[in-house]
Amino acid sequence: MSLVARHLEANKIPTVIAGSAKDIVEHCGVPRFLFSDFPLGNSAGKPRDLVSQERTLELAFQLLESSFAPRTTVQSPEIWSPSHEWKLDFQNVDRIPAEEIKRRRLEFDKIKEIGQQVRDETLNTDAN
């Protein structure tokens, strides 16, 4: 998505990314980034929380209107929950038992195989 935002801006279309993977987006370098410090999957606001969703969108609008230079990041003031365990848990190898790591390796090999099949099917459809 960062690459898409960059391409659109280079073609004169202003963009704002609303997302949660701050390091990845900023590492790439994008014009405007509204950062919600939430678990991945909630870039548009908290689930079942209309106020949070509207606030998030409004912040994105304000960022579009007020930014004057690229790499402008605004952090939403919203907090996901009183506990920040989610930050320590996500894909953290220090918190995953060895047996579980082995299981996930097998699972991920299958996932990659399926992904490749879907990709091949798409390319074959295009070729026909």
Binding site: A18, P39, L40, G41, N42, S43, A44, G45, K46, P47, R48, D49, L50, Q53, E54, T56, L57, W80, S81, W86, D89, F90
Partner: peptide, 18 residues
Amino acid sequence: DRKYSTAEDINSFFPLEA
């Protein structure tokens, strides 16, 4: 994040209604 999030509300990842 499947541990802390369920994707049950489309509006939390696709802000069409907002």
